[in-house]
């Protein structure tokens, strides 16, 4: 005799019920948890920006963010302005807005601007909005810029803090799915700390970026003007991704820093 569960009608009924039940369950979970998750991501962005500025709870060897409770307060106190620079496809500045001007226009905080979306916009020939966070740390004015690119498996991104001469004052990198122990190490202190003090410009003032280089004969990173940091062994493609996103994204800010110099 045929088993009840072998019938086609039963199989189809089971599949339908399963899809509805599981679908409803997942939809319910996702929509009920979404506000909490978005809030977590928002605070994390603030922590990232503050981290790049050097406002963090780092101990001797590991990278530790300022706590989630303190982050919003610290963000308010240390970030003096959030500029939004709009550039055309040739990289020419169309306009520069302060946080208040931008907020009045769009009702959105500049630090929530989606860098990936802006990159897509630029590819389609639309103007690109570049957020730039201005902060004060130990009497120095720092400019933090977000960057976004791709590593070996998935997206990588980061925040780089520079002074007005485009010398790096701190960097934070993160990734979605790089290999643990290899590419994932871009968010480790030994890699991020190497960027401190590196020049983004050549001595003549031309934008060169910072290359994540293998065998650059400077493993201790004493030479800060060579536009290179030591790469991670076994993570060539992730390292190349970091090089590429620094080159392509930070270059766009060069015209703005030129205007700072002329003033």
């Amino acid at each position: 005799m045929e088993k009840r569960t072998d019938k086609n009608s039963y199989t189809i009924l089971f599949a339908v019920v399963m899809v509805v039940v599981v679908g409803a369950l997942l939809a319910f979970t996702a929509s009920s948890l979404k506000p909490t998750i978005t809030e977590n991501q928002r605070v994390e962005k603030q922590q990232n920006i503050l981290y790049a500025m050097g406002i963090n709870d780092n101990d001797e060897s590991s990278a530790i963010f300022i706590s989630t409770k303190k982050a919003p307060e610290a963000f308010k106190n240390n970030i003096t302005d959030q500029l939004v620079i709009t550039i055309d496809t040739n990289g020419k500045i169309i306009k520069t807005q302060t946080r208040d001007e931008y907020f009045a226009e769009t009702k959105q905080e500049p630090y929530l601007i989606d860098v990936k979306k802006q990159q897509t916009n630029a590819k389609q020939g639309e103007p690109r909005k570049l957020p730039l966070f201005v902060g004060q740390k130990d009497g120095k004015t720092l400019y933090v810029a977000p960057i976004y690119g791709k590593g070996l498996w998935n997206s990588i991104w980061g925040y780089v803090a520079v002074d007005k001469d485009m010398v790096v004052q701190g960097a934070y990198f993160d990734h979605l799915g790089e290999t643990p122990g290899l590419g994932a190490n871009i968010k480790q202190r030994f890699f991020m700390d190497d960027f401190y003090g590196e020049h983004l410009l050549s001595e003549a003032g031309v934008f060169k970026g910072i290359t994540v280089a293998k065998g650059n004969a400077d493993p201790k990173n004493n030479d800060k003007t060579d536009n290179a940091v030591d790469a991670i062994a076994g993570a060539t493609i992730t390292g190349d991704g970091v090089t590429a996103m620094i080159k392509s994204d930070l270059k766009l800010y060069k015209p703005y820093f030129d205007t700072l110099k002329n003033n």
Partner: peptide
């Protein structure tokens, strides 16, 4: 489906309460 649903639920809960 069972394994995928379980993993997604766990992932979402972690993202919300243990980011």
């Amino acid at each position: 489906v069972v394994v995928a649903a379980l993993v997604i639920i766990v992932d979402q809960v972690l993202k919300a309460f243990a980011y």
